[in-house]
């Protein structure tokens, strides 16, 4: 039938070309599926490996005790590191969140021309700075003067988080349609009130996701903390004015010590860190979904 021929169903002159195209289409689909499966498998492998290794040393004591004085001894836990991680990352978030969101709002709403260009360049450069350098920077400016402390660690982590938050927030603000801003201004609402009550709420879901990514990143950072918070496995330290341990520091210290029991604790710490980050990410997703914009 002529009509079928023209659709490529018959033996018309177009058919071989179309068949080739179909084959290529199928081939690419298989390839992409395979790649995705490969990445998924890799992720599952890493997670399950950490889980299998880590679950051996995880027990109630792991989250209520400090590491044993003798690193070769079994038992003990990372209680002080858990406290340290939450405290230091918490303080870092408190510092980085207003700075990052403020900077993004300024970039998106107020900055023009050269100032905007320079500011964007600065955030890009900050994103690219190796975090050990950030640690060295805080060491030189803060630690030399005031000594090692959890707060110094928080400063270093805040420097890591700020450019991530700026980038994510600005990207999300850019996605807010301009006519929402105009609608608000046309009601006689000031620009600042428009930003707070219309633009930021509309971009909220994306901003939360971006901030959570920054928090997760900060939780895993080790290098900047080596030069700032230093670590403290002797007792539970809750005062951020003193040197503190974090999960990431304890994982690093225990894994590189060469004692089997310490290495087991490092695996358990890694598992716990992954679990904390995963929980926070899922929580953030739920919050983001709840406040997501429905159009």
């Amino acid at each position: 039938m002529a009509t079928l021929d023209s659709l490529g169903g018959g033996s018309g002159s177009l058919a071989p070309q179309l068949r080739r195209r179909h084959r290529r289409n199928r081939g690419m689909t298989y390839l992409l599926t395979l790649l995705m499966a490969g990445i998924g498998a890799l992720l599952i492998w890493i997670l399950s490996y950490v889980a299998i290794k880590g679950v051996k040393a995880i027990n109630w004591g792991f989250i209520t005790d400090t590491p044993p004085g003798n690193p070769d001894a079994a038992g003990g836990g990372f209680y002080n590191g858990i406290i340290g991680t939450f405290e230091i990352v918490g303080i870092a978030t408190l510092i980085a969140l207003p700075l990052g969101i403020g900077c993004a709002v300024y970039l998106n709403q107020y900055a023009t021309g050269r100032i905007a260009g320079v500011l964007r360049l600065v955030t890009d450069v900050m994103l690219g700075i190796p975090t050990i350098v950030t640690g060295a920077f805080v060491y030189a400016l803060w630690v030399v003067e005031f000594g090692f402390s959890g707060f110094a660690g928080a400063l270093a982590l805040a420097l890591v988080m700020v450019p991530l938050i700026v980038r994510a927030t600005e990207e999300m603000l850019r996605l807010v349609p301009g006519d929402l801003k105009e609608a608000s201004l046309a009601l006689g609402v000031t620009q600042s009130r428009t930003i707070v009550s219309v633009l930021l709420p509309t971009a909220r879901a994306g901003i939360i996701t971006g901030v959570m990514l920054a928090v997760a990143r900060a939780m895993g950072e080790t290098a900047p903390l080596l030069l700032t918070a230093l670590g403290n496995d002797l007792f539970v330290e809750t005062n951020p004015g003193q040197r503190m341990s974090t999960l990431s520091l304890q994982i690093f210290g225990s894994a590189t010590g060469g004692f089997v029991n310490a290495q087991n604790r490092a695996w358990a710490g890694a598992l716990l860190l992954i679990a904390i980050v995963l929980t926070l990410t899922i929580m953030a997703r739920l919050i983001a979904r709840k406040s997501a914009v429905r159009r």
Partner: peptide
């Protein structure tokens, strides 16, 4: 001025949140 002179736009733009 805008409190006294309101405006309705071409595309409906209710606040989505």
């Amino acid at each position: 001025v805008r409190r006294r002179v309101g405006m309705v736009f071409q595309r409906p733009n209710p606040f989505p949140t």
